[in-house]
Design a protein around this nucleic acid. Sequence first.
DNA 1: ACTAATGCAACCAGAATTGTTACGTAACAT
DNA 2: ATGTTACGTAACAATTCTGGTTGCATTAGT
Lengths: 142, 142
Amino acid sequence: MKRNSRLSLALHTMSHMASDPDRVRTSADIAEHAGTNPVVVRRVLGKLRKAGLLTSEKGHAGGWKLAMEPQKITLADVYLALDERFVSGTEEDTAPSLCSVETGLQKRVADVLGEIEENLVHRLRKMPITDVHPKSCTYCDS
Amino acid sequence: MKRNSRLSLALHTMSHMASDPDRVRTSADIAEHAGTNPVVVRRVLGKLRKAGLLTSEKGHAGGWKLAMEPQKITLADVYLALDERFVSGTEEDTAPSLCSVETGLQKRVADVLGEIEENLVHRLRKMPITDVHPKSCTYCDS
DNA sequence: ACTAATGCAACCAGAATTGTTACGTAACAT
DNA sequence: ATGTTACGTAACAATTCTGGTTGCATTAGT
């Protein structure tokens, strides 16, 4: 894995789980199948848990499971849970040396990127994670 | 600027140029207005030139200009010219230790990300760079 | 000639990312 | 109770990415 590995790992894991929702998986198990490390898995899956998509249990028979029916989880949920924005940057300091017109354009560019981001998420909302797994795909419409 | 600064810089510059297509701008000029460095500007704009969106002239009265009418340039052109894919990673080595079902899912995840990317670009195609710039900009009159 | 601009390579510093080790905590089995 | 299993988290190293900077060659105009 090289780039966007967090999103890839999240999607991989979620679609795996969607195909067998009752099975509890350990981070070691997931890590082996994803070709990475248990700690890395827990790092990423921790965000999904924080977003309410997964539950985790400690102890002997512990592990990870979907927090709801897989049909109700979309790629947008996964994407947003990771809390990484691909196109729109985070709001930050505007260089004070720039004139007001410049900062206006800066803001406008940021707004445009925000709109693109919104469109992207809107699209992802229509893609349930159950469609990632090879057997069926309903969102290939356009 | 912090994140996605290359795309921000490209959009910023392109929309500026769209508002006054005949004016030739030097990288130093652009850099100052964008709050960055001439070399960085040339780095990014070089990609846009390679994609045929800009032209550059050396020498005394040299600088940068749009290669075509601004109405014909979309955000997709700019996005693709940078040759950075936000959602879909580049194709790379599949770990040989994984079973065939796993690599199948890996590929499927990559495919899904590719489709998302396609949708994004499809959206951007409908956004000309002339839409980015705010209506009133005194800098362009100077 | 002289000046002004791009083109390009090299390098540095800081941030981001991934992998790894280590240790604490919680749940279950015996 | 004790041991095993697994998560939770912090800390660290190695790598890559990124932006900034310097330097120099090249080209075009005055």
